[in-house]
Nucleic acid binder design. Structure first.
Lengths: 122, 122
DNA sequence: CGAACCCGTAACCGATGAGTTACGCTTTCG
DNA sequence: CGAAAGCGTAACTCATCGGTTACGGGTTCG
């Protein structure tokens, strides 16, 4: 049971600068798709597809409110990458013990995400 | 002064599963290119190019020894990504304080890397 | 010296990915 | 009810990327 599956999706997702900026934007608070799109020089459908990528790997969640779709960030999948990175700790227990806390967080939020998914597109 | 530049290269580098596996392989110890290549089902030149990508963003360093080129991993650039991830800490100071240690590490190793680069291809 | 070894690069190719415009659905509101 | 707003999707184009084979340069060794 490795995270390889999820890590693959998440690393691919954050490899794009636009998607990273979207996440940073959402860090300040939830936003409807329109508000997100107008912050970028690219077309709205382009942003919409970036949002889909982020959605499919659980980095954002959305709630349909009237005719607006509000997005909010979920850092849990990022923690899995942080977990992988932590495996490259210096000599022995350099960052290790500190980042181990992340792993705990991963397990904790894995439950939450399942619940979240049911709420999505609600 | 943001890491955006470096983070962009590093996230792109670790987005590929083969490159991540190379890093994991090198985590156990340095290896000549040949030894790395024979662990993968793809051709040797393909691995060689993956190594180049990893080299160009500082994730690996190489030393020319006779007719062999020995590679070793450098986790420092990964720390910059960890740093970025840490910015998505839960509510307030959930992982934050723990991952702050990473940032310190980033600064520390930035000097080292400059020295490393001079040694490369030596 | 010449053959074998180790490795990187060049040239080429199919797949993938990010961008665009056009379109359709649902919700709001005059 | 009909127009406008807010989103997502489809179809298409173009650049990038990862894979392959072919090749060349430096090193070891019989």
């Amino acid at each position: 049971m490795s995270y390889a599956f999820a890590v693959d999706d998440v690393t691919a997702a954050i490899a794009d600068p636009v998607r990273r900026q979207i996440l940073e934007l959402l860090r300040a608070g939830e936003l409807p798709a329109r508000r997100i799109a107008e912050r970028f020089p690219i077309s709205r459908p382009a942003v919409s597809r970036h949002l889909r990528v982020l959605r499919e790997c659980g980095l954002v969640h959305d709630t349909l409110t009237g005719r607006e779709r509000v997005y909010r960030v979920d850092p849990a999948p990022l923690a899995e990458v942080g977990d992988w990175i932590a495996g490259f700790a210096r000599p022995a227990g350099f960052w290790g013990p500190r980042l181990d806390a992340l792993e705990t967080e991963v397990h904790r939020t894995r439950r939450d995400r399942r619940a979240q998914r049911l709420e999505d597109t609600a």
